[in-house]
Amino acid sequence: MRINDVIHGKARQDVITIRPDATVRQLIGLLAEHNVGALIVSADGSSVDGIVSERDVVRRLHADDGVLEAPVSSIMTTQVRSCEGSAAVTELMQLMTEHRIRHVPVLTDGALTGIISIGDVVKSRIGELEFERDQLDNYLHQT
């Protein structure tokens, strides 16, 4: 299975981005509004300047409650691991495991086309396993 297959199976395929100069408070609002765990930081909506997750907010908020008015760029991760939509999901699972990340931007020819979470990968894998189980069950009951 390819990453694009997982992306196309998602209920929402649009990518919510936030500008680097937006405040962390605005970030929290977008995370809550869209019920997501991370946003791509992008000045133009198609490039990837960084990624910021709810974990980033919590870690900084614990140390500094004034961070809510700080720019997103002050808490974002700038060295972003990404993947191509044509790559295999197994490669993505390995990337997520090795680097302990939960959200990965999907790029096509260097432009942002999606975001995939560990939850998306798990849901897809469960679907594959259920399909295989059903196929085996059908095979066994046909004989």
Rank of each mutant, 00 (worst) to 15 (best):
R19T: 15
P20W: 01
D21P: 00
D21F: 06
T23S: 15
Q26K: 13
I28D: 03
I28N: 01
L30H: 09
A32N: 07
E33K: 13
H34R: 05
N35G: 07
N35A: 12
V36G: 00
V36K: 03
A38H: 03
L39K: 02
I40M: 02
V41T: 08
V41D: 02
S42L: 08
D44G: 03
D44A: 06
G45C: 08
S46R: 13
S47A: 11
S47I: 05
V52C: 10
E54P: 04
R55Q: 10
R55Y: 11
D56N: 14
V58N: 05
L61T: 10
H62I: 15
H62V: 14
A63N: 12
D64I: 13
D65F: 11
D65H: 14
V67P: 05
E69H: 09
A70W: 04
S73L: 09
I75K: 07
T77F: 02
T78W: 06
C83E: 07
E84K: 12
G85L: 04
G85V: 06
A88E: 13
A88W: 04
V89E: 05
T90D: 10
T90R: 04
L92V: 15
M96S: 08
T97N: 09
R100T: 15
H103A: 12
T108C: 09
T108H: 12
T108R: 15
D109H: 14
G110I: 12
A111I: 13
A111S: 14
L112R: 02
